[in-house]
């Protein structure tokens, strides 16, 4: 029975205040990263050093919440030692699991810290049970975070064919590409999620404004232009307006967020063990708001999946903090694909 199952709510902690907001508002687990390129949200002013991580872990553990550490970028020869040191530090700090993507680093962690629980990051690009079983066989991963490319029936079949736990994104900014396999950002800026832990990095962004409106550029490349008064969003390069076949439009994706609120019962029925909220780069207020809504929704769904429907005020609250103030089911809905 789905209703007897425990489903973990995993929330983003880009800072100590965000971590506290998540724990205080019902997160079962939080995920964080160190203050460097070892994680996929390597943004100025975010993340944890050893001291703040220790405080955060203590805060979460005292309140019964787990702490997961994202070490989910791909180290290169010149900085390999920085990544292995981060794995060692994570093991010392006593996190509940490390979320990793790089096969070489997974091997290092599995051999050096055999007791450490390993999760395969969304950046590991595992979209089938064969791929997941590879990571399980090689490194003993216990959980996988699925890239946002599978339909409901594909997720269901995948879960039925692996005993690795499956975590899915339930809310947050939508990555249109298979995570871990997108080099668009480095094509434009030289930095990508894989290499530097950043997509469309802020230092490459430039805004221009004149009587005709505003334009956003990424390393000089025009990502979008806005008429005077038109609301403008952060220039994530796949969510700009481009010209294809003579039409100027959102050729790849429009600014929108993923929200699976409508389909939580289906996810639980499929056997998902954890629902993740994206947004370590977002404010503690966002974390508080989203955690609170998702907690209520998950509890309602777990208690009575047959009669679950998202409350209208939940939808309003989530859309308020969503990218583009709107949401989609993404690839889970075949029509989106």
């Amino acid at each position: 029975m789905a209703s007897e199952k425990k489903v973990e709510l995993v929330c983003p902690a880009g800072s100590l205040p965000a971590l506290k907001a998540a724990v205080d508002n019902g997160a079962d687990a939080v995920y964080m990263g160190f203050r460097d390129a070892t994680n996929a949200r390597n943004f100025p002013g975010l993340n944890f050093d050893a001291g703040s991580a220790t405080k955060g872990i203590q805060y979460a553990h005292e309140r019964g919440a787990k702490v997961l550490l994202a070490l989910n970028t791909f180290p290169q020869p010149e900085n390999w030692a920085q990544w292995t040191q981060a794995v060692d530090l994570a093991a010392t700090l006593g996190v509940d699991a490390i979320i990793m993507a790089d096969p070489g680093l997974l091997r290092y962690a599995a051999t050096t810290h055999p007791g450490l629980r390993l999760h395969l990051s969304v950046q590991g690009s595992a979209t089938s049970y064969d791929a997941i079983n590879f990571y399980q066989q090689q490194f003993g991963i216990q959980r996988v975070v699925l890239p946002r490319v599978l339909s409901f029936s594909q997720v269901t079949r995948l879960i039925a064919n692996t005993d690795v736990e499956v975590e899915v994104f339930g809310f947050g900014s939508l990555c249109v590409m298979v995570e871990g396999r997108c080099a668009l950002s480095s094509y434009v800026t030289g930095e990508s999620p894989n290499t530097c832990g950043a997509c469309s990095p802020a230092k490459a962004v430039r805004w221009e404004e004149d009587a005709n409106g505003r334009r956003s550029r990424l390393n000089g490349v025009l990502i979008d232009s806005y008429k005077p008064g038109e609301s403008a969003g952060y220039p994530v390069l796949c969510k700009g307006r481009f010209e294809v076949n003579g039409q100027v439009d959102y050729a790849i994706e429009e600014p929108t967020s993923l929200s699976l609120l409508d389909r939580l019962p289906d996810l639980l029925k499929a056997g998902v063990v954890a629902v993740k909220v994206e947004g370590r780069q977002r404010s503690p207020a966002y974390v508080k708001q989203v955690t609170r809504v998702l907690r209520q929704a998950l509890d309602a769904c777990l208690a009575d999946p047959e009669n679950y429907t998202p409350r209208p005020d939940w939808v309003v609250q989530l859309d308020r903090v969503a990218e583009g103030s709107t949401h989609t089911l993404g690839a889970l809905d075949r029509a989106w694909q």
């Binding site: 180290p75 390999w80 096969p103 070489g104 680093l105």
Partner: peptide, 25 residues
Amino acid sequence: NTYNQATLELLSDLGAQRWVMPMEL
């Protein structure tokens, strides 16, 4: 995603005869 020598070693141990460098390296 072969970004470092540890991954090269893993692939070699698994029977790879060749690796193709990722685009962005």
